[in-house]
Design a protein around this nucleic acid. Structure first.
Ligand code: FES
Ligand code: FES
Lengths: 162, 162
DNA sequence: CAAATATAGATATCATATATCCGTAATTTT
DNA sequence: AAAATTACGGATATATGATATCTATATTTG
């Protein structure tokens, strides 16, 4: 059970877009080059972000993407779910219903205990991701990235931004 | 990103084995019938439990499986990881290394901030599952299952147990 | 008008989950 | 001793989803 690689891509891209000045846009092509990713496929991830309303896009030359909200208001969970979907990691196939001892016509009222426990674990996972804002990530990255690389990247992005 | 259905199967089977009297064994065939599952494939899940040391098996007629530990000492995480594996849900492909602004020969010391955050979420998920013992599940099930069905199932199992 | 862009749909490829089948060794029952 | 039953491992088949590419279209910039 592994998250799609698009999740990593989306997080990196959002971190870059968070550093973009107001009103500027960065294209799929630039984001793909910056991260060494297949442009066409990365495009799918960005479209997911767009459909989820996390980023805003414009067409034409000098078009591309920018964040639709402030980095403080975008959570990890927003980004992960935009790409990965919101469904739970555990699905209850209700195999308890196959018990041959079961009286015929018996109907289960509530979800079973197993599923509830597994879903609680899913929920703490989600809550943890909800507690981290995109701005928190940017802070950490700016602290951990070598100053020169951070500056060069910022300039590279501004150079490519429409 | 969905857990394999074998995870559900393994949890149900362990819950049944937890009710088995000391020294008795229950076969794959019986467990498959009880849950309406394909015997050959369920066998793979049970083999995973066996390899992880969660259950003990014997060969021959009247052979099968029993728990290798007390239900209080078996956690949800033990069972989930035995079937699903212990790898994390987020894998860092280190695409930050593809940044064209990066000085050549630059080497990353620590894991990146994104991966660390995602792994923290994985860890709270695991911790939540570690906090639930198999005995807790059995308690909940005995409370929520209709008394007659609970009793009939227990008898059915004893009837099939070697 | 020409170039660049996002978007959607179609398609291809690959990995994994799901499922079945068979052979072997061990054990119990007859 | 023979026969039946079982766990186990390996091989194989099928279905589903992830990964990746390609094309066509509409929109915007210059
Ligand atoms: S019946 Fe199996 S997890 Fe709900
Ligand atoms: S470099 Fe992308 S998550 Fe680690």
């Amino acid at each position: 059970m592994v998250l799609k690689s698009q999740v990593e891509w989306a997080l990196h891209c959002c971190a870059i877009l968070a550093g973009l000045p107001e009103g500027r846009y960065l294209s799929t092509k630039a984001l793909a080059e910056l991260h060494g990713l297949p442009k066409e496929y990365l495009s799918k991830a960005l479209q997911s972000l767009s459909q989820a309303g996390l980023v805003h896009s414009t067409l034409g030359p000098s078009g591309g993407y920018r964040l639709a909200k402030q980095p403080e208001e975008l959570t990890f969970l927003d980004i992960v779910e935009a790409v990965e979907g919101t469904s739970r990691t555990f699905v209850c196939a209700n195999i308890r219903a196959n018990n041959p001892c079961r009286p015929k016509g018996h109907c289960d009222s509530s979800p079973c205990a197993i599923a509830r426990i597994m879903w609680e674990a899913d929920e703490v996972w989600r809550q943890k991701l909800r507690d981290v804002a995109l701005s928190d990530l940017v802070k950490r990255l700016s602290r951990e990235t070598p100053r020169a690389l951070w500056k060069d990247t910022f300039e590279w992005v501004l150079n490519r931004a429409g």
